[in-house]
């Protein structure tokens, strides 16, 4: 079983047939569910939706397992399904998404403090920490305003920590396209952060 999954993580089509049986699919879920959930929560910022769509992702993978041709890794294939589900979710429930985006957001304070340390500000530490929290929130908010492709590329790169090649495979676009979208997304985010630092704090 472990061998089958290992082969599957590479490019094994034969192994895919074995690993997609109902019994061994449990193992597939076990191996990939955390990363799929992480991807979805990065894209959606909604724990409930991420949980639901993680389940949907695996169900869809199971029902359409015959269409898997082994041209990419199973993980990339699962990412594609998850990204498409997230797109549909954002498209269909945009208003609810936004409500939850601002109500469910929680950031680890240690990371925010770390960010706060890098901000060239002479204000007291607590204030800088608050500013860092605001800036992280600002980045998330800015990402939500990006075009769908820019947002996905940006979040897959920085929230999901994927390489540009992995992003290109997941989104089924050329590497150059990924770079172009990422550059535009970064320009927008940098501009918003710069604007925020020079203007009044975010409310």
């Amino acid at each position: 079983m472990a061998d089958a999954l290992a082969n599957l993580s590479m490019f094994g089509k034969v192994a895919a047939t074995e690993a997609f049986s109902a019994e061994s699919f449990d193992q597939l879920v076990f191996v990939h569910q955390k990363r799929i959930y992480r991807l979805l929560i990065s894209l959606l910022r909604d724990p409930d939706a991420a949980d639901t769509l993680t389940q949907e992702c695996f169900l869809k993978a199971y029902t359409s397992r015959t269409s898997f041709r082994g041209e990419c890794s199973v993980e990339t294939w699962l990412y594609r399904i998850a990204v498409n589900l997230a797109r549909d979710h954002v498209r269909n429930r945009r208003s609810a998404f936004w409500r939850k985006l601002f109500s469910a957001r929680k950031s680890p304070e240690e990371e925010l403090d770390d960010v706060a340390q890098t901000i060239p500000d002479k204000r007291p530490s607590l204030e800088r920490s608050m500013l860092a929290r605001e800036e992280v929130a600002l980045v998330w908010k800015t990402a939500e305003h990006l075009s769908p492709m820019q947002r996905e590329v940006f979040l897959l790169r920085f929230a999901q920590d994927m390489s540009l090649e992995e992003i290109a495979q997941t989104l089924e676009v050329q590497l150059g396209t990924v770079k172009a979208h990422l550059s535009r997304a970064l320009s927008t985010v940098r501009a918003r952060v710069k604007e925020h630092r020079s203007g009044p704090p975010l409310k």
Binding site: K34, S107, V115, E135
Partner: peptide
């Protein structure tokens, strides 16, 4: 460094949420 730390905070927050 400022931007890298800020963007790294996204990764950390995604870790925290998941």
């Amino acid at each position: 460094d400022e931007m890298e730390h800020l963007l790294r905070a996204l990764t950390a927050e995604a870790d925290h949420l998941s």
